[in-house]
Design a protein around this nucleic acid. Structure first.
Lengths: 204, 204, 204, 204
DNA sequence: GATGAATGAGAATTCATTCAT
DNA sequence: AATGAATGAATTCTCATTCAT
């Protein structure tokens, strides 16, 4: 894995072309993310990406032989950033509430929802999302277990269950808000926060 | 009787969609739903739908001038079925648990998630989903309010908040299961059911 | 020719279907002219015409089996109106100047130019326009010959030549004005009017 | 060398059209012109052009993202050729008569009339024709002013007016001849030539 | 490392016309 | 006299991908 990238032509299947570290590569990934954010993932064609990056379309294919390769690269970059944010949340002074804020934060969620949507007809993406989701949930569960210990049991929740619950409600709030649905949002948010208040020492 | 009184091409606003009762029309809607289920909404092109329905593509356009029209027809049919199921749930002997079963039922949810994904780049769909979601939530809130009354307040939940919460967790379970994610699922499900047990008289 | 129209199905070639005098027929012709004026002749499809007339498209084909039939009907109606206007001009007190005003009148010319454009790829239209143009020019030449007699010869013009010249300059002014070209327009107009002044007794 | 540096799809504004020097590109433009001449501009679809050029339709779109782009390229090439011919006429020994011959020359005019017809529903073409017409007329007026000076005033014509007049009559003769109209043509031609004889020293 | 050129496939529409009733 | 349904052919445009240089 760590070895030097071999610049194989596109026909060679499982080989990533273009240096991992290339500036051009980063530019393409960045442009793709922008396109997805602005126009939705369905617009993330090599042509439009190339246009945004001000590069010829064939260069996009040079670095990312298939569209899946490109999309995966964007997902992985986003996942790494999410991981870092979650790590920061989990090691903050108020980890659970920080996690909740993370899950109900619109900006991050928008991109994530695009990938979930994408997962429907992109097996490669689906697999990668599943892998990452499992890992994220496991990590969160592990930390919350440490932090909340038996207070969780008192409330008939497990660490993994709570993690899923926060993610579910957070994402739904964001997704619905994007569509213009608002009924029950304030109430659900309040309920979640009440639950956290019971589980946690009051915020300072 | 039957068939669209479409005097207007796609570009025209006021289109009479014609009688809902046309065998061909129904066949197209059915084929489209199948395509969406099997291959994802991105595959719901007039061509593929026509192929599945064994009809010429132009006939699809005859009944549904634009792709949005077609997709909306499928959504509306699904929404009506959902409405009926929800109504049945809400008027059953154990309405809240029936609602929860509805939300966490995979078969219905799969199609719903396709439409949510679709909403990202189909404004017409987005608008319709939003409208329907609001209506559904309002209806559920109204009924739950009647049923649970002040038991809700004791648990720091509102009717609308609970409706959203059930929908959020239910959908997340289904969506993640579709992708192959399972961690925390049993736990979250148990927590929700525990909450319902507290709110409701025990199931018979 | 004069006999009663036989309501033959579309397959019968040279037979006009639908009563000459039908109100529906007139409505279709009127709608077609409006479409041509507003959106250009290329938009004069049976569907759009039907839409404008608020009639089903098949009814348009019932009256006008082919698109050429429809277009010809519109042309002929316009030609008749033009003939009437020209006749009025030629029998007015100042016939030649009235003719010049007719030729340089934008409103009438707009539709005429659509038909000239159409003539390029519609043989039936081309033939009809040619026939009508010849007839119009002959009629004008005849009248001008009577009116101007030998004054024409003094100015090295013939009646037919003058008719063509007025038509040519008039149409060019209108057509260019439509496109936004204006250079030389005032000058050319003045020259034509100076010529008419030489040929004619001064306007009252 | 050359070929289009088109990083942008049709929807994008700032498109670099790439080097004029590409054999394929030239072949497409040439094929388009032939199609327009032979079958009228309405037949200038990417398919038919591709067929004539013996190239796949998608290649036509590669060089000319939109039909307007293609049509404009054909127009511009024709305009350049016209400009060259006009320049040659204007610098010949008998510039005004050469210009008249140019305007009444069928071969050149046929294509020009197609573009005028096209202008009706192609804004891009309309704008370009207007620009070019204005420029052409200005250039001609300038030269004629130099050449004919005050002889023009004696005949109640201006340079720009004369330019328009020659263009109007020339084009009308050609257009009508194309349709099979001939009445008055010899006479009008004679009148124009008589006018030129008065304005100019007799031809050698 | 990079890129211009090329291409087959497919998408969304629109259209003229036919036909059975 | 009228019309709903149907359909094959076109049209414009977009895309992923390949390939030679």
């Amino acid at each position: 894995m760590g070895g030097p990238a071999i610049y194989a032509p596109a026909m060679v299947q499982k080989r990533r072309v273009g240096a991992e570290s290339s500036e051009t590569r980063a530019r393409i990934v960045e442009a793709t993310e922008q396109v997805i954010r602005d126009e939705g993932y369905a617009a993330a064609s090599s042509r439009r990406v190339a246009l945004r990056a001000e590069l010829p379309p064939s260069l996009v294919h040079y670095y990312f032989p298939t569209t899946d390769d490109l999309l995966l690269a964007v997902f992985r970059r986003g996942a790494e950033q999410s991981d870092a944010m979650i790590e920061a949340a989990l090691t903050s002074t108020d980890p659970v509430r920080a996690l909740w804020r993370f899950f109900s934060d619109p900006s991050r969620n928008a991109l994530a929802m695009e990938f979930v949507a994408m997962a429907n007809h992109r097996k490669a993406i689906r697999t990668e999302i599943a892998r990452h989701s499992e890992a994220m949930r496991a990590r969160q569960a592990q930390l919350m277990e440490q932090l909340l210990g038996d207070r969780l049991a008192d409330h008939k929740v497990t660490a993994a269950g709570l993690s899923l619950l926060l993610a579910a409600v957070g994402r739904t709030l964001v997704m619905e808000a994007d569509m213009g649905v608002a009924s029950g949002h304030g109430d659900a948010r309040a309920s979640v926060e009440a639950l956290l208040d019971e589980l946690l020492p009051p915020k300072k």
